Structures are given as C-alpha cells and as structure tokens.
Computed example of a mutant assay.
Amino acid sequence: MAQLMDKAKNFVSEKMSDVAKPEAHVTDVDFKRVSKDHIEYLAKVSVQNPYSASIPICEIKYSFKSASREVASGRIPDPGSLKGKEITMLDVPVKVPYNVLMSLAKDIGADWDIDYTLDIGLVIDLPAIGNFTIPLSHTGEVKLPSLSNMFSH
C-alpha cells in the first residue's frame, strides 16, 4: 500500500511540475516616506499570470533583512487578484522602525545607505492546486532619507 501511495505522489508531482504557474520578480525598492516611528520603503513586484482567468492573491508576506538580521517583517492580507493573461504590478510597503536603523549605523557609514535582502512570499490560490507560494528574494541598497526628504513628506 505504501508503494502505491508513493507512486501516486510521484505521478502528481510530475504532473504539477508541468503546470504553468505565475512568475514574479521584484522590479524596484525605493524610499517612500517618513513617519513619526518608521521609514517606509516601497517594493514593486511584477507578476505574470499565464491563465486567462484572474487568480486571487491570499496574502503577501515579507521579511526585510540587513547586516544578517531581520529588521522588519509583515503581511498584507487579501491584496486583490492577478488579472488574467496580464502582468500585475503589486506594491509592497516595507516599514522599518527608526530604532533598528540606528542600530545599523555602523553598516551605513559614509555613504548613508543600507545593504538589504528582501524576501517576499506571494501566496496565491491556484484552481485545482490550492494555495501556492511564489518565493521571491531581492538584494540591493537603499538610501536613508536626508533631512530634506523628512520635511518634504
């Protein structure tokens, strides 16, 4: 009986690997605004839906890491859906508390930027498959806002 179950699992796995799935990538991460307790960056995510029908997005999860530690994380429940046979642009706001940024000051140095890794899990509801997570990872540098940025927003 166990062999039959293993064969069934392998068959389903092989068939699922052939099924077209939405593809996504982070196109940009940039400064958005300053609030009284955090700096907000905005990640832009481009998602290509290969199906003619729209696909609901269950949630977006994110983790923002710098200097080998997580400095911000969050989730966006029910952010909408992916349009059929189109590219959908999603905005993922990343809120980084000031106190964390100050502890990263040694990494910032003279160039006033921080190196980061942004991990995003885009959880979608695929018909006949169920919830499926598209994992994304993006590394880069973001500038900390200058005084003029802080007072212009």
Score class of each variant (00 low, 15 high):
Met1Phe: 10
Phe31Lys: 08
Lys32Trp: 11
Ile55Gln: 01
Leu144Cys: 04
Gly84Trp: 00
Phe151Ser: 06
Ser66Gly: 04
Ile120Arg: 09
Glu70Gly: 00
Ile87Phe: 15
Met150Gly: 10
Tyr41Ile: 02
Val12His: 05
Lys44Glu: 12
Phe64Cys: 03
Gly109Arg: 07
Trp112Gly: 00
Phe11Thr: 10
Ile87Asn: 12
Pro50Leu: 06
Ile60Lys: 04
Gly130Lys: 02
Asp28Trp: 06
Ile76Lys: 13
Asp37Lys: 14
Ser152Gln: 13
Phe132Thr: 08
Gly121Ala: 10
Tyr51Asn: 04
Lys143Thr: 11
Asp6His: 10
Glu141Arg: 11
Asp91Met: 01
Glu70Ala: 05
Asp119Ile: 06
Pro56Asn: 04
Lys106Trp: 08
Gly130Glu: 01
Val123Met: 13
Ile39Arg: 03
Ser13Gly: 15
Leu82Ala: 01
Glu141Phe: 07
Glu40Cys: 08
Ser13Ile: 09
Thr133Arg: 09
Glu86Arg: 05
Val92Gln: 03
Ile87Pro: 13
Ala72Asn: 06
Gly140His: 03
His153Asn: 15
Gly130Ile: 04
Ala8Phe: 15
Val47Cys: 02
Leu126Met: 13
Gly80Pro: 09
Lys65Gln: 13
Ser35His: 02
Val45Cys: 02
Pro97His: 10
Val34Gly: 04
Gln48Thr: 09
Ser13Gln: 15
Lys21Glu: 08
Ile60Thr: 12
Ser68Ala: 12
Leu4Thr: 14
Pro145Ile: 11
Leu122Trp: 03
Thr133Val: 14
Ala72Ile: 09
Leu82Asn: 05
Asn131Met: 11
Pro22Gly: 03
Leu101Met: 11
Asn10Gly: 08
Gly80Glu: 13
Arg33Phe: 13
Gln3Arg: 15
Trp112Ser: 05
Asn99Asp: 12
Tyr62Gly: 03
Cys58Tyr: 14
Ala53Trp: 15
Pro145Val: 09
Tyr41Ser: 01
Ala72Phe: 03
